[in-house]
């Protein structure tokens, strides 16, 4: 049985079938890959650009970035402090989830986008202290509605920047390219 199958594979029709099978597999893989790179569904279609356009600083909503490892997601209390003074909050369908969450006292389930795996210990504070600006990693949020990573956040990308930042300073290079700086 298996022998006849392999014999058939060597026939022209069999070759074509193998080719088609590979094409299908490849397309599925490509589609899957494409899917994973899409911004995830968020509970609220949060328009970063609108907020930035009002002149709100990144650190106003994400103050953790300057103090510690995690930038954090603002509390609903913080959202509401502004939004309950804005007429549109009461009427806009897009803002209904926020209203519901505040009234129902239920947390909004955000899907974090700019995150690193558990085995990476990333610290925002060190990067801010080194003079990096938010947009250098997170992209131009004046143009973004729902946040998307401007690039794949992988180790190569981290290291490129680290090596660049070290420049000619050997000691700094050692520190910034050390495995133990991020992995423990």
């Amino acid at each position: 049985m298996i022998k006849t199958f392999f014999d058939w594979l060597k026939q022209p029709m069999g070759m074509i079938a193998v080719g088609i099978a590979f094409l299908v597999l490849f397309s599925v893989a490509a589609f899957g890959l494409y899917q994973t790179q899409q911004a995830p569904e968020q509970p609220i279609q949060f328009p970063h650009k609108t907020h930035v356009a009002f002149g709100i600083q990144c650190l106003y909503c994400h103050p953790g970035a300057s103090k510690g490892p995690s930038a954090g997601i603002p509390t609903q209390e913080k959202c509401w402090a502004c939004h309950n003074q804005i007429q549109k909050t009461q009427t806009s369908a897009l803002l209904a989830p926020l209203k519901d969450a505040v009234i129902g006292n239920t947390p909004i389930q955000w899907v974090p986008v700019a995150i690193v795996p558990d085995f990476v210990q990333f610290n925002h504070r060190a990067h801010i202290a080194a003079g990096r600006n938010c947009e250098e990693c997170h992209g131009d949020l004046t143009q973004m509605t729902i946040y998307e990573n401007p690039q794949v956040m992988n180790m190569g990308w981290c290291l490129n920047c680290h090596v660049e930042a070290a420049g000619e300073d050997q000691e700094k290079l050692i520190k910034l390219s050390d495995c133990g700086t991020c992995h423990y």
């Binding site: 893989a29 899957g32 890959l33 899917q35 994973t36 790179q37 995830p40 994400h62 103050p63 953790g64 103090k67 510690g68 490892p69 995690s70 930038a71 954090g72 997601i73 603002p74 509390t75 609903q76 209390e77 969450a101 505040v102 006292n105 239920t106 947390p107 909004i108 389930q109 955000w110 899907v111 974090p112 986008v113 995150i115 795996p117 925002h124 990573n149 794949v152 956040m153």
Partner: peptide
């Protein structure tokens, strides 16, 4: 390819505090 390359975000949900308790700061 299907699972490893994408942002792990798809599997995580984050709930912020509704009100930040006193003496608590993110992170």
């Amino acid at each position: 390819v299907l699972t490893g390359c994408g942002p792990a975000s798809r599997y995580v949900k984050r709930e912020p505090y509704m009100e930040m308790p006193e003496y608590t700061a993110t992170g």
